[in-house]
């Protein structure tokens, strides 16, 4: 494996945080409101991840995402537990692929609860597929400098004398 002793890997303790202990339908049911509630953290994490392309450099951002999601689901549990579990149950059992279209009634009840209690409105159905501008304080990563080879053949100095071609042009029939 290419991971050597010189590769810095975070320790187990640095990476251990409380994870979201929810199943697929439960996550899906809360997806839209979660995306609105944690939009900044999510965008920050994904920006970091795509800019640096290294999971080791985005641990703090990732922890912020999980923390925000935990807080969101705590909020849901506090005020909308009944509506939420009803919606989850519907998503889970109404279709084979957790289809949203068959659960509009329970979804409306859940949406209303979230709107009344936390003022989180459900965005329109394609909101998270749109391209958005994210305002951040993260410094822009330096572009990769051009590769310098130590043993590259040195080129001619700029003021080298350029003699005329000894045997004329290769394309003698053209010019």
């Amino acid at each position: 494996m290419g991971i050597t002793k010189d590769t810095v890997l975070p320790t187990e303790e640095e990476l251990t945080v409380q994870e979201i202990n929810l199943s697929g339908p439960a996550l899906r049911a809360g997806a839209f409101h979660l995306g609105i509630d944690c939009e900044f953290e999510n965008n920050e994490f994904i920006l970091c991840r795509n800019e640096l392309n290294d999971p080791r450099k985005c641990i703090q951002e990732g922890k912020a995402v999980t923390e925000c999601a935990l807080n969101f689901f705590r909020k849901v549990k506090k005020s909308c537990a009944g509506e939420y579990s009803q919606y989850v149950n519907c998503l889970d059992k109404s279709s084979t692929n957790q289809d949203f279209t068959v659960c509009r009634k329970t979804q409306a009840v859940f949406d209303k609860c979230m709107l009344d209690n936390y003022n989180i409105e459900r965005p329109y159905y394609g909101y998270f597929t749109e391209t958005k501008v994210h305002k951040t304080c993260r410094p822009k990563p330096e572009p990769e400098p051009p590769t310098v080879y130590e043993d590259a053949t040195p080129g001619l100095p700029p003021d080298a004398e350029k003699l005329p071609a000894k045997y004329g042009s290769r394309f003698h029939w053209m010019w």
Binding site: M1, L9, P10, L27, R28, L34, I46, E61, F128
Partner: peptide
């Protein structure tokens, strides 16, 4: 859209577990 909304959460969890496993492998 729902998948994209959940993607950061799942990716963050996956990254942490992935790095733990890399250390275990080493």
């Amino acid at each position: 859209s729902a998948q994209f909304a959940l993607y950061p959460l799942l990716l963050a969890e996956r990254d942490r577990e992935y790095m733990k496993q890399l250390r275990r492998n080493r």
